[in-house]
Amino acid sequence: MTRWTTLLMDDAQLSELPNVPAADVLRHADLVAARAPKPIELYQRWERQQWSAEDLSFGRDQVMLNDERVPAGIRAMLSNAIATFIIGEYTGLDMLGPILTGSPDEEYSVFLGTQIADETRHTRAVFRMGAEVLGMDENPRTMLAQAWGLATPAHTELALLEGRIVREVHERPMDYGQWLQAVSLFHLITEGVLALVGQRVLVHALRDINLFDGIKTAFVAMCRDESRHIGFGLHALRTGVKEGYAEQIYGVLEEAVPLALRLDNEFEGIAVDFRAMSIDILRRHLGAIGADPAFISHLLDRHDTRSKLHTA
């Protein structure tokens, strides 16, 4: 028996990432979060885990995406994932400015500066995938409009909620409770559930396929970055709960969680396991920040089909 560690995922160079076992990728964020790293530790991880969106190669991926020998389900899943992340990564870049401006702590600000760099790199990576793999317009504004044309109603509603919360942070940058609501929405929901689950599903789907190495490399690298972002969000929210701001955090989660879980039903071909994964991740995240168990049950049990089956 050998001990599992995060070292392989932590220390792999960009060219090695497609060969990291899928199980290591899937568990990485959970193990990083379990260590409860402080912002300075997350900054130090960022220093060691640099990569370049310009070093990704998508030529072969574009050919394979149009090859009818590749299962149609895989090709559709990749196309939908790329379009979704075009919206998500650019939205993340847009949201982080006010979150950084309203940061209540110097070490928080240092880490958030690294996250803005990450979101910039992710945005460039998915813009390249959109143009070079999907054949979308190279102009970012036009590409975003094309990607929004594929968005689901729940995705649109969640984006409107994000816009409202970020505007409020921008208008009241020194309001700590408002800042925690933005972190709840962005780090816990958008990053900690939607992005993480989407990346995990894609990596899992490609685990046995010796194709799409460019896409696989990009998403594994993004998963590793996401581990740091989620770790920061859990630290900030755990601190906020201890300082008496639980109700503000709970308020935005009441709005956001049903929208996030609706996304599972609005993408054709999504398996029940996708929804179960989202609920399991949410339950762990909420426990990690010290949320009241009664609130966690109130928020999640009505969405968890397994709980309903168990109590039926």
Rank of each mutant, 00 (worst) to 15 (best):
P153V: 08
T152A: 07
E191N: 04
L134C: 08
V183C: 08
I165H: 00
Q178P: 04
H187S: 09
A131V: 04
T152Q: 12
M143Y: 03
G130P: 07
H170V: 02
W179Y: 13
W148E: 12
P140G: 09
T142H: 08
L160Q: 15
L160Y: 10
G177R: 08
H170F: 05
H170P: 00
M136H: 08
E171W: 08
H187E: 05
E132F: 05
V166M: 14
T156F: 07
V169Y: 00
E168Y: 07
A151T: 09
A131M: 05
A151W: 01
T152D: 04
V166Q: 10
L188D: 00
D137S: 09
R167C: 06
Y176G: 02
T190L: 14
P140V: 08
L134E: 05
E168K: 13
H170M: 06
L150Q: 13
Q178G: 13
L144A: 09
V133T: 07
S184E: 00
V193R: 02
Q178N: 13
M136G: 00
L144Q: 12
L150V: 05
L150K: 14
L161A: 10
H187Y: 13
Q181W: 03
F186Y: 14
I189S: 04
Q146F: 00
A159D: 10
A182T: 07
L194T: 02
A195M: 06
L180W: 10
L144C: 03
A154W: 04
L160H: 14
L196E: 15
H155S: 12
A195K: 02
L144Y: 11
R141G: 10
L134F: 08
W179L: 07
E157D: 14
R141F: 11
P153A: 06
E191P: 02
D137P: 02
A182G: 14
T156D: 02
A182M: 07
L150M: 12
H187W: 03
R141H: 12
L194V: 11
W179C: 04
E168V: 07
T156K: 11
L134Q: 06
L196C: 03
L158P: 01
